[in-house]
Simulated assay, not measured.
Amino acid sequence: MIRVVLADDETLIRDAVAQLLGLEDDLEVVAVAGDGPAAIAAIREHRPDVAVLDLQMPGADGIEVAETVRRTQPGCQVVVVTSHGRPGYLKKALAAGVRGFLPKTVPATVLAGAVRQVAGGGRYLDPELAADAISAGDSPLTPREADVLELAAEGAPVEEIARRASLAAGTVRNYLSSAVAKLGVSNRHEAVRLARSQGWI
Score class of each variant (00 low, 15 high):
Ile2Phe: 07
Arg3Cys: 04
Val5Pro: 08
Leu6Ala: 09
Leu6Gln: 03
Asp8Ser: 10
Asp9Arg: 09
Thr11Ser: 15
Leu12Val: 15
Leu12Arg: 15
Asp15Leu: 14
Ala16Glu: 13
Ala18Tyr: 02
Leu21Ile: 04
Leu23Glu: 14
Asp25Ser: 12
Asp26Gln: 09
Glu28Lys: 12
Val29Thr: 04
Val29His: 09
Val29Glu: 09
Val29Pro: 02
Val30Tyr: 02
Ala31Thr: 07
Ala31Arg: 04
Ala31Leu: 03
Val32Pro: 01
Gly36Ala: 01
Gly36Leu: 06
Pro37Thr: 00
Ala38Gly: 11
Ala39Val: 02
Ile40Phe: 12
Ala41Asp: 15
Ala42Ile: 00
Glu45Cys: 03
Asp49Arg: 07
Val50Gln: 07
Val52Asn: 02
Val52Lys: 03
Val52Pro: 06
Asp54Pro: 06
Gln56Asn: 15
Met57Cys: 01
Met57Thr: 00
Gly59Ala: 12
Ala60Val: 10
Asp61Ala: 07
Gly62Leu: 03
Gly62Ser: 04
Gly62Phe: 11
Ala66Pro: 06
Ala66Cys: 01
Glu67Val: 11
Val69Ser: 00
Val69Arg: 08
Arg70Glu: 09
Arg70Thr: 10
Arg70Trp: 00
Thr72Gln: 15
Thr72Arg: 13
Thr72Trp: 10
Pro74Ile: 06
Cys76Lys: 02
Cys76Asp: 01
Gln77Thr: 10
Val79His: 14
Val79Ala: 12
Val80Trp: 06
Arg86Asn: 02
Arg86Leu: 15
Pro87Tyr: 05
Gly88Asn: 08
Gly88Val: 08
Leu94Phe: 13
Ala96Asp: 07
Gly97Pro: 08
Gly97Asn: 01
Val98Trp: 00
Arg99Ile: 12
Gly100Pro: 00
Leu102Thr: 11
Lys104Cys: 04
Val106Asn: 13
Pro107Leu: 05
Ala108Trp: 05
Thr109Gln: 14
Leu111Arg: 03
Ala112Pro: 10
Ala114Glu: 00
Gln117Leu: 13
Val118Arg: 06
Val118Gly: 07
Ala119Asn: 04
Gly120His: 08
Gly120Ile: 03
Gly122Phe: 06
Gly122Trp: 06
Tyr124Glu: 14
Leu125Met: 10
Pro127Asn: 09
Glu128Gly: 12
Ala130Ser: 13
Ala131Leu: 13
Ala131Ile: 02
Ile134Pro: 03
Ser135Met: 14
Ala136Ile: 02
Ala136Gly: 04
Asp138Val: 07
Pro143Gly: 00
Pro143Phe: 00
Arg144Tyr: 03
Glu145Trp: 07
Glu150Trp: 14
Leu151Arg: 15
Leu151Asp: 12
Ala152Thr: 11
Ala153Asn: 06
Ala153Gln: 05
Glu154Ala: 15
Glu154Ser: 15
Glu154Gln: 15
Gly155Phe: 06
Val158Met: 05
Val158Trp: 07
Glu159Gly: 08
Arg164Leu: 14
Ala165Pro: 06
Ala165His: 04
Ala165Met: 08
Gly170Glu: 14
Thr171Cys: 05
Val172Leu: 11
Arg173Lys: 13
Arg173Gly: 04
Asn174Leu: 13
Tyr175Asn: 15
Ala179Glu: 01
Val180Met: 04
Gly184Gln: 00
Arg188Trp: 11
Arg188Tyr: 10
His189Leu: 13
His189Tyr: 12
Ala191Pro: 02
Val192Tyr: 03
Val192Gly: 00
Arg193Tyr: 08
Leu194Ala: 01
Leu194Thr: 13
Ala195Ile: 09
Ala195Asn: 03
Ser197Ile: 10
Gln198Tyr: 12
Gly199Arg: 09
Ile201Gln: 11
Ile201Asn: 02
